[in-house]
Design a protein around this nucleic acid. Structure first.
Lengths: 360, 360
DNA sequence: ATGAAAGCGCTAACAG
DNA sequence: CTGTTAGCGCTTTCAT
């Protein structure tokens, strides 16, 4: 498979009749002026025909549209954004895109935004927050109409810069009484408590956690452990016996090794709360490999409710977070702000659901 | 959890000493002029200090940097892009982000681009190509410095618009003698042939395929089937007996139901080539549920080599595509173009590897 | 090495 | 409803 150097061709429309004085580097692209000239109107009228067709007479509208059609003109939204202070760009920051937990939100964000003419810029901060500063600068420099953050921005420096930039911000996947701006999330503490109660009701009496070293997962686990102790399902202060922490991102493999480690420390464990579905499925597989019956001997609860969790065998009980709702809501908030509408209560707790399946 | 309406505060630096005539809507943000004034230099000098520090005396460089530091100034790259015709934005189009096959490429693109100061815009075309036209307009309108396409652009209309836009394009995940511009991919036909040979060498004699209705998967399967017939592993013209097509996106569940259907049609099947790892794992699970031994009675080959495929039991044999290499290479091509360097042979076949594991 | 002038392509503001 | 004017914030070009 070989090929030549392929110079990028430039599409030149029919040269305008009247050559205009152009001292700098023009000629590159078709502009609104060219279209306007072709339609015999002023540039601003052509602009209106494209952006606010109702504000223009049908005859002119038609002429402009014809001109656009004939030339293949595509408006330069960078220039438009500069003039109107609306870039129609929205930035989303996720720790990492692989690992699939945030995918549903990103997908729904992309779609909701696209439906209203906005485009998503994607940024990955990494779990160790190292690049976060440079990323923030790159984002703010593009003057997006909104920024969607995964999690709460913890660095005071970051909060300050975002605040100073004046860009609408939506923090997600968590709750806080002091958001930078807007918030769409859920309570990790409530999840921990709910899962503990859930397992207790199903008769489990010796529970443990397998979790990433991620801050949110740690908070879920603490709430879970506190409640579990209240319910007598976990020995006081027995953290080493009943909790295993693995580095993010979690994998199926870390689920398998995690279960081995936990069982080595405490073979009497009869229920396990995992910080991701991937790990939970690894746990189920390892249990099967060791001849431990799920759910009879060991109940397993995952987190995130990945699409395939219902298809594994036994089907996995998991805490479902509706990423689609997060994405939609965040998009709505930002678009409303961008349209000048003041969002009255830009804080939303979307809650969660424990999807009970065979693994418990 | 309640909260007040939170007006977005505007960060105002110390007011400039000399009030400038500003008839329109200014005052919103800090500009290069403000920084320049603070540093007692012309705006263009401040610009040079930030963009080409070597072209400026050390003393001035320091003054400008101080001013930036004091004010928290972040350059407006939209304005910069308009003036310099370099947006430092790159668009990536994927069918869908969920389904994880393209994630590795997107991640690597994001990172490689970020490392050179470029930002990724993400677009989802959907598998049914319906939104592709609007998406293309949205992308071209932002004047990105490059577009990365997943797969070959087949719509003639789309090819024309992209070509006319003059934007560097990288098509990926496939090969073609007639790319729009640049190309980083691999041969789906070769994969089909290689997998057929692979299974034949391992003694399989009655093979079948389970595949999405995706165009690339269909081409892999055709090559696979042709070779399988040559090798006597598949009856001539027995498409219904040895091939099952499911709608994209593929899921674990479609793997399970797919295997049931194939076995109903032909119980003698001893090897199965699946168009995704997700489906392949579903096949393994269904086989286990039915008491069919993998690999003894049934060999299973996946496609995509997802990270967890090596962790399932039995570990899945899969065709590995290095998405990281695709992303890196595409980013390199675009950045080189954007820097004015002519890429000499902008076509790259990255190949593939059959990762042999327990499932065969 | 530094600066003045002139736009990049578009739209807000204000006429008519 | 349509047009004129004056920028948005930055960088190119051309002087000095």
């Amino acid at each position: 498979m070989t090929d030549k150097i392929r110079p990028v061709p430039e599409a030149l429309p029919d040269a305008p009749a009247v050559p205009v004085k152009r001292s700098r580097r023009s000629g590159g692209g078709l502009t609104l002026r060219d279209v306007a000239k072709l339609a015999n109107v002023a540039p601003i009228t052509a602009s209106r025909a494209l952006n606010t067709p109702d504000a223009v007479s049908p005859a002119i509208l038609q002429r402009v549209r014809d001109a656009v059609e004939r030339t293949g003109y595509v408006p330069n939204m960078l220039a438009g954004g500069l003039a109107s202070k609306k870039s129609r760009l929205v930035a989303a920051v996720v720790p990492t895109i692989t690992g699939s937990v945030f995918l549903e939100m990103v997908q729904s964000l992309t779609e909701s935004l696209a439906a209203s003419g906005y485009q998503l810029m994607l940024g990955q901060s990494g779990y160790q927050n190292s690049r976060e500063d440079a990323l923030l600068e790159a984002i703010i420099g593009r003057r997006p109409d909104g920024v969607v953050l995964t999690g709460i921005m913890r660095s005071a420096q970051g909060r300050r810069r975002l605040l100073a930039s004046g860009i609408p911000v939506v923090e997600t996947w968590d709750l806080t009484p002091t958001p930078i701006d807007m918030l769409v999330g859920f309570s990790h503490e409530k999840i921990g408590i709910a899962v503990a109660d859930f397992l207790h009701q199903r008769g489990r009496r010796c529970v443990a956690t397998l979790s990433a070293n991620d801050e949110r997962a740690v908070r879920r686990n603490k709430a879970f452990a506190d409640r579990a102790r209240e319910l007598g399902m976990m020995a006081a202060g027995a953290d080493e016996m009943s909790s295993c922490i693995v580095p993010a991102p979690t994998t199926l493999g870390s689920g398998r090794s995690g279960l081995r480690e936990l069982l080595a420390r405490n073979p009497r464990i009869d229920a396990l709360f995992c910080s991701s579905d991937m790990m939970a499925i690894g746990v189920i597989m390892e249990a099967q490999a060791q001849g431990i019956a799920v759910p009879d001997q060991l109940a397993v609860v995952g987190m995130g409710d990945l699409s395939f969790s219902r298809d594994v065998n036994p089907a996995l009980t998991s805490v479902r977070i509706d990423g689609t709702v997060i994405g939609n809501t965040a998009a709505r908030y930002i678009i409303a702000r961008s349209d000048g509408k003041l969002v009255s209560e830009p804080v939303c707790d979307i809650g969660f659901t424990i999807m009970e399946r065979e693994s418990t």
